[in-house]
């Protein structure tokens, strides 16, 4: 994008970035909701899902958005109004900032900084603040408990996620996301360079840890203790309705899409497919489509786990993070570091 935007005025550039950013967040989120939440979940339960709105229910999503927009935007009487109203924006902002670091082609990116992946993982943590704001400001016990659970969970699973990424960073030797993709495109696995070196092969343990941690970061089943509807109504979402609930909903699935894209970028080679030069200009056109395809592949697994497993208990959840995933990812880092030095 930097090449395309070189000659434009600042306001034009900003407008284009905003529009592309909106599309880049909302389109994958909508695709995930329709393809996986509506359709795949239904098929896995031997039903068809929405079929009435548009062909095969493809316009159901618009109908849902219309429904949410009509609803009254209720703020509880005892709530901290300003914080209550701001919370969904904070969650959504974290999602929109996260898309910045993911490149979609050799010249297609929002920002190209040397600490890209660090920035991405840092802004992804902002959503914790939004969730805590939502839970506290709602002045509801359910919301507060849900928000506290969410905070504990997000902090616990942030660590294995970051540590799993560290393995990739060691192997690629850079924090720059674009260069990580390039390293995968031009890399070799023990001298064989036919398919590049997608890190899912050499960093398989890291990939698994990353997937599990992402699942927990998204507070999706089996890690959906914060919104456990049988005990906490819907956790920190309890008091929200209408547009603000919709924003949390979009935030959840947009984050699912972006984390899938991040996993695809870090472990599956991003916008690159074997067979073409990594610097080929063609990738500026087909790169986003390839990235979308790989994102859908990762998201398929995330949602597959979501629709299969029942919910964890809170202590099991923390145990898995602190006693299994973090030691495992530390071992993974040590082994990766040793092999990096040896080879």
């Amino acid at each position: 994008m930097s090449v395309v935007l070189a000659d434009l005025a600042y306001w034009q550039e900003t407008t284009i970035r905003l529009v592309v950013g909106l599309i880049a967040v909302l389109l994958p989120a909508g695709t995930l909701v329709y393809l996986f939440l509506f359709k795949m979940m239904s098929f896995m339960q031997s039903r068809l899902g929405p079929m009435e709105a548009g062909p095969y229910g493809s316009l159901q999503l618009l109908a849902e958005v219309g429904k949410f927009l009509q609803k009254e935007d209720i703020v509880p009487q005892a709530a901290d109004r300003l914080i209550f109203k701001l919370a969904p924006f904070v969650v959504l902002i974290s999602t929109f900032l996260l898309i910045l670091v993911i490149p979609a082609g050799p010249d297609l990116w929002f920002i190209d900084v040397d600490t890209g992946i660090f920035l991405g993982l840092a802004v992804s943590s902002i959503s914790v603040i939004g969730i805590l704001m939502a839970g506290w400001a709602s002045s509801s016990k359910y919301s507060l408990l849900g928000a506290l659970r969410a905070t504990g969970q997000l902090i616990a699973y942030e660590l294995p996620m970051v540590l799993a990424v560290v393995g990739v960073i060691i192997q690629a030797g850079t924090l720059n996301v674009q260069e990580i993709v390039m390293a995968q495109a031009t890399g070799e696995i023990f001298g064989f360079g036919g398919i590049g070196n997608p890190y899912v092969i050499t960093q398989f343990v890291g990939f698994l840890i990353f997937l599990i941690a992402v699942q927990a970061e998204l507070t999706q089943p089996p890690f959906d203790m914060p919104v456990a509807e049988s005990e906490l109504v819907t956790g920190y979402l309890t008091e929200y309705s209408g547009l603000r609930f919709l924003m949390f909903f979009i935030g959840e699935f947009a984050t699912a899409a972006i984390f899938s894209a991040l996993a695809a970028t870090l472990f599956l080679g991003g916008w690159y497919v074997p067979g073409l030069e990594a610097t080929d200009n063609l990738f500026n056109v087909i790169g986003p489509i390839i990235l979308l395809g790989k994102m859908l592949l990762v998201a398929f697994f995330i949602f597959w786990f979501r629709f299969t497993y029942p919910r964890f208990r809170e202590d099991q959840l923390q145990q898995l993070a602190w006693k299994v995933l973090i030691p495992l990812s530390l071992v993974n880092i040590v082994i990766t570091g040793v092999l990096k030095v040896v080879f």
Binding site: M40, S42, F43, M44, Q45, S46, W304
Partner: peptide, 8 residues
Amino acid sequence: TFKTLVRT
């Protein structure tokens, strides 16, 4: 779940 998906 995958078998049910394929069967559906």
